[in-house]
């Protein structure tokens, strides 16, 4: 495990003076009576990849899902504290959750294409959000999204075939294409490579690095190498608390906290 070398691949693009794209202040999440997340303060910088790491059950996915209110779909789930997107409180009752999710897209752990054609998969988001004005527009969005997701060359001749017929890695890139087709500002990725083989993983990681130019990305990952390879900022969660956050290279080379140190050296997790 060569953490140092891995960390240096991702060039830091921190712009310290730019305002954060998203910001969580004292975020807590309850599932019924049980509190799963405690007082998380985290800034998500624009056009950066922020990775959330930590052992299973540490609350990193919970935090991620609270960023586009996917937690709303779970009965009895309650979020306290404040999360802003460009200074707007996303839990404000005046916010339409559907619009929020159009701006903060999500890619899931297991590839979950709709059992429809590849074209329909990508076109669905633009259609419901009224992004395309006509068929040519829609075609253009679908094509460019597939191109950006690095899938175009593999599927350009079979856009009408079902998306479920693709391989696992292709399916996940299809899901990424589907997510970026609505032109979100932030892209949330919940362990996007955990169901994939190493080669497919490498392709996706490369893709994430390219997407960073246009999107702000938050990724939950189990693999520290992956966090080191793709992200500029890393946040370490443990037992529902945010233990440490900072530049990825700092976290991996010079963690301030003992628990972080234990985790990245493999003693907990």
């Amino acid at each position: 495990m060569s953490l140092e070398s891995a960390a240096t691949i991702a060039a830091p693009v921190s712009r310290p003076n730019a305002p954060p794209k998203m910001q969580g202040e004292k975020v807590g999440v309850f599932y019924g009576e049980k509190q799963a997340l405690f007082d998380v303060d985290l800034k998500i910088e624009q056009f950066n990849v922020t990775s959330l790491i930590g052992p299973s059950g540490c609350g990193k996915s919970t935090f991620l899902r609270s960023l586009n209110r996917m937690n709303d779909t779970i009965d009895g789930c309650r979020v306290v504290g404040k999360i802003t997107l460009d200074h707007d409180d996303i839990y404000d009752p005046a916010i339409d959750v559907v619009e929020l999710r159009a701006r903060v897209g999500m890619v899931f752990q297991k590839p979950n294409p709709f059992p429809k054609s590849i074209y329909e998969n990508v076109a669905y988001g633009p259609k419901i959000h009224g992004i395309a004005r006509n068929k040519a527009d829609l075609d253009e969005i679908v094509h460019s999204s597939l191109r950006r997701a690095g899938l175009w060359n593999e599927v350009k001749d079979r856009l009408q075939e079902p998306g479920t017929g693709l391989s696992g890695g292709q399916q996940q890139r299809l899901c990424i294409a589907r997510a970026i087709a609505t032109k979100p500002e932030v892209l949330l990725m919940d362990e996007p490579c955990s169901a994939l083989d190493p080669i497919a993983t490498a392709v996706i990681e490369e893709l994430i690095d390219e997407l960073r130019e246009n999107f702000t990305i938050v990724i939950v990952t189990h693999s520290m190498q992956q966090a080191a390879r793709v992200s500029q900022k890393t946040a370490f969660f443990h037992l529902g608390k945010l233990i440490e956050e900072g530049k990825t290279e700092d976290i991996f080379t010079n963690p301030k906290n003992k628990q972080t140190q234990d985790y990245i050296t493999g003693r907990i997790g």
């Binding site: 339409d96 619009e99 419901i128 959000h129 009224g130 992004i131 004005r133």
Partner: peptide
């Protein structure tokens, strides 16, 4: 109304 506005400035809420 939708066609008369710039999406970058103001996003329509619902489809026609």
């Amino acid at each position: 109304q939708r066609d008369g506005t710039d999406r970058a400035k103001e996003v329509p809420h619902s489809l026609p």
